[in-house]
């Protein structure tokens, strides 16, 4: 039986992932900042399954507390996944560095802060898996939401570096780039059906990916090709496009 730590567990993807893990018999530690939602989730998982479920307060921006948070977990996790993310208001980011910083810190600094602690432990122990949930937005900076994009690009580089470092210790590192997914982050957006996944689908694909040790995961296949195209476009063309 695996013990899984889910950071940002109250995200729509996190909730679906927690459920899928619990149904396959893993014990679950749920970490997030909203206690009420965490309690509701724990109650749900305890009714659905017989696995052990615990809840823990975690704020990605409260980096000083990360070490205490991690040390105080009831069990040492076998696998850790982080769903924390903040899209932020693009216009507000351009106007105020305070807002921009919040986006950078939530998506990158805060995630690095906690995953470094996990990585050090896993390296010493010589096993485990770490999954970071990044975004296709990190594959190339684009005018809409490039603050978010640059943080996710940073996360991509971080996860790739971490993978190289931990490879020889037998620790597996995965980077998930969901593409569009119908969650509260994009509530009300008009998204094309074929390119948009459901949180349950993301959960299923990630679990399968961990099993098969896929290093970079695009949830729906077309995203890999779309992003490849976007990446190879010459800058002189790219800068004129509205994508």
């Amino acid at each position: 039986m695996e013990r899984i730590l889910i950071i940002g567990a109250t995200s729509d993807m996190g909730q679906a992932f927690a459920q899928a893990c619990a149904l396959q018999g893993s014990s679950i530690m749920l970490a997030a900042r909203n206690g009420d939602v965490l309690d509701r989730m724990a109650k749900d998982l305890r009714a659905r399954t017989q696995v052990a479920v615990s809840t823990h307060a975690f704020d990605a921006l409260d980096m000083e507390q990360h070490e205490v948070f991690y040390q105080d977990l009831p069990e040492r996790p076998d696998g850790v996944i982080c769903f924390v993310g903040l899209l932020g208001d693009a216009a507000a980011c351009q106007q105020s560095f305070e807002v921009a910083r919040r986006v950078l810190d939530t998506n990158l600094t805060g995630v690095v802060s906690i995953l470094d602690l996990v990585a050090n432990e896993f390296e010493k122990r010589g096993r485990g898996w770490i999954v970071g949930v990044s975004s296709v937005a990190g594959d190339r900076g684009r005018a809409p939401r490039y603050h978010y994009g640059c943080a996710k690009a940073g996360l991509n580089a971080y996860l790739s570096g971490l993978r190289q470092r931990l490879f020889k210790s037998g620790v597996f590192v995965m980077n998930v780039k969901p593409g569009y997914c119908r969650t509260k982050m994009v509530a009300g957006w008009n998204l094309p059906n074929t390119m948009t996944s459901e949180p349950e689908e993301v959960a299923r694909v990630i679990l399968k990916g961990i099993h098969r040790k896929q290093e970079t995961l695009y949830v729906r296949w077309m995203w890999r090709w779309i992003m490849w195209l976007i990446r190879v476009l010459p800058e002189c063309i790219f800068k004129r496009l509205k994508i």
Binding site: R40, M41, K43, D44, A47, R48, Q50
Partner: peptide, 15 residues
């Protein structure tokens, strides 16, 4: 769609 409780002795579930 949360599950609220399950009594494994009686098989009564609340969702």
């Amino acid at each position: 769609r949360s599950f609220l409780s399950f009594d494994s002795a009686s098989g009564v579930v609340c969702c």
